[in-house]
């Protein structure tokens, strides 16, 4: 583990810290929304530690609060989280050897840590970015949720501060370096368009998975090579 920290330079540490601040603020709003929806304190707090996947947690709380069956909320959450299978394939090498590290590294997998890692140039930096970001977000997200749950509905409206724009902007900034490659960029643009077009018609989570259709451009790419 020590070798991971040795390659965390100041620039990387600063960027990770900022992603963590953003995660804490989103966690804050998640906790507050859950309590504001009538859930007891344990629910958002425990859920954030054991599930640790923000989008699915918002969805779960939203569905149950609206009177939906918890198992339906569970299925919706699983649908949203299915993308982690592809993330696991992509970052497998970064998790390291040994059963415990692989289990821990898997649980720390988030959109941000994957995007951060894929955006780095050399393998060593990829690894440190993944772990630093994963651990940092785990701590800051859960701290945010705890605070938000304790504060309750007092801080529900994150829109006022534009924080809803901060999350996609964070992901965009993280994913930009990976878009330099021509075919990947085309696949991502097509996939994003498919997801957007499908969003009004399909349940949450499915449109994002449908974006994988964009990978079809690789079929043409291979034929040309």
């Amino acid at each position: 583990m020590r070798s991971v920290w040795r390659t965390v330079d100041l620039g990387l540490a600063r960027d990770v810290a900022l992603v963590c601040v953003a995660a804490a603020v989103i966690g804050l709003s998640y906790g507050a929304i859950a309590i504001g929806s009538g859930f007891e304190l344990w629910l958002p707090v425990v859920m954030s530690v054991v599930v640790f996947a923000g989008a699915s947690q918002f969805l779960f709380v939203g569905i149950v609060a609206a009177g939906g069956h918890p198992l339906a909320a569970m299925l919706a959450g699983l649908m949203v989280n299915a993308r982690h299978v592809a993330f696991g394939l992509a970052v497998s090498d970064l998790l390291g050897r040994g059963r415990h590290r692989r289990i821990l590294g898997s649980h720390l997998m988030t959109d941000e840590s994957v995007a951060f890692a894929l955006g780095q140039e050399d393998p060593e930096r990829k690894r440190s970015a993944y772990w630093a970001c994963g651990i940092g977000i785990f701590v800051s997200w859960n701290a945010g949720v705890l605070l938000g749950s304790a504060a309750g509905a007092a801080i529900e409206d994150t829109g006022t501060f534009g924080l809803d724009a901060a999350f996609p902007a964070v992901l965009l900034a993280l994913v930009l370096p990976s878009l330099r490659e021509h075919t990947t960029r085309r696949a991502a643009l097509i996939g994003g368009a498919v997801a957007l077009a499908a969003t009004p018609f399909l349940p949450a989570g499915v449109p994002v998975l449908m974006a994988l259709l964009g990978l079809l451009v690789f079929a043409g790419d291979r034929g040309a090579a």
Partner: peptide, 21 residues
């Protein structure tokens, strides 16, 4: 290469839907 690309495609889809919908 395809696996790395699929992660990027999913991330872009997440951020695009989060930004616009």
């Amino acid at each position: 290469r395809l696996m790395a690309a699929s992660a990027v495609v999913l991330l872009v889809a997440v951020l695009a839907t989060a930004a616009l919908t």
